[in-house]
Simulated scan of single mutants.
Amino acid sequence: MTAVVKNEAFEVHHELDTCGLFCPEPVMMLHNKIRDMKSGEVVRVIATDPSTQRDIPKFCNFLDHPLLDQNEQDNQYVFWIRKREH
């Protein structure tokens, strides 16, 4: 799947659906997913918990994974995250 965010096109390698889950589960699932990904791969995360708007950017910042973009669509929060290069 290819995504275009902020006029930048990039390939999305993984999708993580955490809809219906509440803190801390979405971030825990993201952590596990990132661990299984290769450097440079992108994951699209879909969530319904409003706290993910705060928690996922903090997770990315703390572990130095680029948060390519985030937005809200149809009462869902969507994040595009690239696994950091080693």
Rank of each mutant, 00 (worst) to 15 (best):
H31Q: 10
P26M: 03
K6T: 12
E15V: 12
A9N: 12
V27F: 02
V27P: 04
V43L: 05
N75L: 11
Q73S: 10
V4Q: 05
H14N: 10
A47T: 09
A9T: 14
M28W: 14
E85G: 10
K38R: 15
L63G: 05
L21R: 13
E72W: 07
R82M: 06
A3T: 01
V42Y: 03
V45R: 04
V5C: 12
A3N: 00
L67S: 06
V12Y: 07
A47G: 09
S51A: 12
V4P: 01
Y77W: 02
M29S: 15
R35K: 11
Q70P: 14
H86L: 12
A3Y: 00
F22T: 15
K33A: 14
E85N: 14
N61P: 05
P50R: 08
V12Q: 06
R82N: 02
S39P: 12
D64G: 05
Q53P: 07
D55L: 13
D64Q: 08
R84S: 07
H13E: 02
I56Q: 01
V12H: 04
C23A: 13
E25D: 11
L16R: 06
E41H: 02
Y77M: 00
R35C: 05
R44H: 05
C60M: 00
V43K: 05
P57W: 01
D74F: 05
A3L: 00
N32D: 14
L16P: 06
R44G: 01
P50F: 07
I46N: 08
N7L: 14
Q73M: 08
D36G: 11
L30I: 03
Q76V: 05
Q70N: 14
S39D: 15
G40V: 01
P50A: 04
E15A: 10
K58R: 15
L63A: 10
P26C: 01
M29H: 13
N61S: 10
H65I: 06
L68I: 12
P50I: 09
I34K: 04
E8N: 12
P24K: 06
K58Y: 11
M29L: 15
E72V: 12
V5Y: 11
L68P: 07
L63P: 06
H14S: 08
A47Y: 02
P66H: 03
I56Y: 01
R82P: 00
D55T: 11
Q76R: 10
D55N: 13
P26Y: 00
F62Q: 15
D36E: 13
P66R: 04
E15I: 08
E72T: 11
L67H: 05
V43P: 06
S39A: 13
F10R: 03
V42F: 01
S51N: 09
E11P: 10
Q76K: 11
V5E: 13
C23L: 14
I46P: 05
D49F: 04
H31P: 01
Q70V: 13
V45N: 04
I34W: 05
N71S: 11
P50Q: 09
L63M: 09
V5D: 11
G20Y: 04
E41S: 03
T52V: 06
T2K: 08
G20L: 08
K83D: 01
H86W: 15
L63I: 06
S51K: 09
D17K: 07
D74C: 02
D74Y: 03
P24C: 07
D64K: 09
Q73N: 09
D49C: 07
M37S: 07
H86I: 12
D74P: 02
